[in-house]
Design a protein around this nucleic acid. Sequence first.
DNA 1: TAAGTAAGGGGTACTAAGTACGATAGCCTT
DNA 2: AAGGCTATCGTACTTAGTACCCCTTACTTA
Lengths: 208, 208
Amino acid sequence: MLQAAVGIADAHGLGALTMRSLAAELNAKPMSLYHYIRSKDELLDALVDGVFAEIELPEVGGDWRAEVRRRSLSARTVLARHPWALTLVEARTSPGPANLRHHDTMLGVLRAGGFSLQMTAHAYAIIDAYVYGFVLQEASLPFDGPDSANAVADSIMEGFAAGDYPHMVEFATQHVQQPGYHFGGQFEFGLDLILDGLAMHSGATRPS
Amino acid sequence: MLQAAVGIADAHGLGALTMRSLAAELNAKPMSLYHYIRSKDELLDALVDGVFAEIELPEVGGDWRAEVRRRSLSARTVLARHPWALTLVEARTSPGPANLRHHDTMLGVLRAGGFSLQMTAHAYAIIDAYVYGFVLQEASLPFDGPDSANAVADSIMEGFAAGDYPHMVEFATQHVQQPGYHFGGQFEFGLDLILDGLAMHSGATRPS
DNA sequence: TAAGTAAGGGGTACTAAGTACGATAGCCTT
DNA sequence: AAGGCTATCGTACTTAGTACCCCTTACTTA
């Protein structure tokens, strides 16, 4: 059931995931689903936790920078694959077991890496803010690939006076619309910048 | 009308903002609203743009670091005041005028600060990822103030074996539950860390 | 002054979606 | 065979968005 629900949300968006559509996907009737979940909210909670379970866990005791980097890349990949998950996170209150396991492991990695409690809090907040925020930006981009960017930019610009948004025009024509542009490629740059900054505050490691 | 809608969403959550509740707030009937908007989607678009309009614009030509810092603090404040806005951003495709103005100005500030187009892209992506992500984390925290943190932590921990999440227990008892803890206070630390990192890549400024 | 007109406001009703309630059918245990 | 458990389902109520069409008011124009 969870698989089917994730499939619908991935393919057609969270809005298309209704009890009725899910039931149809499973060749069942809507009310049959309620033998497995108490409410749709509970289903959504389970979906979020399932997404967290997909993220690679770092290893406590390894090189904190490498471990955090690996799990952050994984988190970004997983969340980009299920863009609806972030929308749900905000509304859900009680974290599931995979979510808790994840948090616990990350805290362990940072602590073992020599961060004080205070710095662990800072580091974790920054890293996850960046990962979540980046995925959120990716998800809200009005275009999917490099190709559709042009059309979108054009359609936005039309209807405004030519000089209204000079910097956006420059940015769009000189950068975004250049061959090879890909928003997602910027993720690692920012991640490394943050990890560099954090390394200066860890008790054990210097930035390279 | 927009004011009333924002008021409902702020006070009772986005879920409480229905055409019917909005009409009631305005002492009108649901269908009357459709003389001013074409659909609820259009209303939500307008709300998002209204939130963006609340954010302080940076000044092009000023010290990029100070300007970006000021607008980022403002963005975080505004978005925290309207936590539902981020949820909407993901679903909306076409940015409104305030949103475009905002982006254009930020790009201008960074360009004037000596960043190359490539670095401007990187910088803007990192900064906004951080701001959005931080607000998202704040919004999804299951507690509002320092006081309720204890109760929440306890209720999460019960039902799990004592040793299941050792690092979270340490973190909760030794850090989160200490007097004076406030998640939001970490925002500036991360922002400055990022700005420091970016300053090393700007053409004109050295990190202090 | 009388008639026309457009804009604001609303009544009714259809559709989609979550889900409460209770019935049914197959199967298993004693 | 009788009782009970489990999965499934049919019916129907509720909330929410909104299509369709009517009414009132105020202003315009002859």
